Simulated assay, not measured.
Amino acid sequence: MIEHLDSIPALVPKLLLHLLEGENLSQAATSLAVSQPAASKAIRRAESLLGFALIKRDARPLELTEEGRLVAQFARQRLEQETMLIRQLRMIRKEGAGVVKIASFGASASTHMLPRLFESVRRDLPKVSVGISEFNDDEALLALREGRVDFATIVDHEYLDLEIIPIVTDRLVALVHEDDPLALLPAISVADLETRHFILTKGGSEALIRAWFSTSGTPLQFKHTAVQLTSILAMIRSGLGVSIVAELAVPDFHPEIRVLPLTPEYPRRIGLARRSGSFSSHAAQRLWRYLCQHRESLLS
């Protein structure tokens, strides 16, 4: 008895499939471009290895045994799988079909930058699908470096191991309740916040906020933290404090909340990054090349 199907002649499952579909042995051999004696020899060799018959030789026309039908049905399933695989590979080659995985940090990227970016991609690369997973800044960068995603949104810095396409420029803004005296100011400085309860976002801008505070020589002191922007807005409405977030993260509708610029301003450039080297898929490679070719229009 054999241990692996590779032990029997590769011709046999195909021959049996042709017999199952109504051909005689001569026709089956001709369909597979072999001689009838070679076909008969291959079947006898397989039967010898298996220890049982695959065809009923006393039947006219030839019929398959139950075991022969099993092998023929296996051949049919494999043929169908090969046909499907070839169709998929052709589609990938022709249309760049596939799923591209992207790690995104915070609402700035997930709700503003990426949807606008891939609106144009959808028109030109309709077979490319995008799967977005949300992380904070450090986790998105780690997911990219570990190869769990194809691309990641990052705040543009110099990374020797990454290629980066700048996409959009954002800035930090202050969020205060509309009844707060700070709402009357034209801009918010570090000094304005020194005595206020501060709500620190954990959703992607924490490092930038700390850096903005440090520009004035004042370490960041915070009373509360929250990951979701909706939670931060609710806390401000409840009078629990004030906050600073990325401007692109702020929803268009934010009742009772004033959005104020910072002084000095603290802009940040957001880009899409990938690891240097090979792409994990043809779809990822095609999408990246598209973004590189259209980077000027993407930035406008």
Rank of each mutant, 00 (worst) to 15 (best):
P37M: 02
G98C: 04
V99M: 10
A10Y: 03
E80D: 12
V12N: 06
S26P: 02
Q81A: 11
R45S: 13
E80N: 12
S40R: 15
V34Y: 00
S48G: 14
L54F: 05
A42D: 09
V34A: 04
L54R: 08
V71I: 15
P13M: 07
R69D: 07
G22M: 02
L5P: 01
I55Y: 05
L11Y: 01
V12Q: 09
S7L: 14
R60N: 11
A10Q: 09
L32K: 03
D6L: 13
R90H: 08
R76W: 04
Q36K: 15
A103H: 03
L32Y: 03
S40Q: 15
I92K: 10
A97L: 02
S104K: 03
L70D: 10
Q88Y: 04
I86Q: 12
L25A: 11
Q88V: 02
L79I: 04
Q27G: 14
T30V: 07
L79A: 11
E82C: 05
R57H: 02
I55H: 08
Q27Y: 01
L25Q: 14
R93M: 06
R93S: 12
E80I: 09
L64G: 13
E82A: 09
G68P: 03
L20M: 15
A59H: 06
L85H: 07
K101Y: 06
K56D: 13
E63L: 10
I8K: 08
R87K: 13
L85R: 12
V71F: 08
I86R: 09
S40L: 13
Q73E: 15
F52S: 13
R45F: 05
S35I: 00
A33T: 07
A59V: 07
E21K: 14
E66P: 05
Q77R: 10
P37A: 11
S7F: 07
S35K: 12
L5W: 13
R69P: 00
A42S: 14
S26H: 00
S7M: 15
Q88C: 01
P61I: 01
T30A: 15
K101E: 12
L16C: 07
P9C: 10
E23T: 11
I55E: 11
R78V: 07
K94T: 11
A33V: 03
P37T: 07
I102D: 06
F74D: 12
F52C: 11
R60L: 12
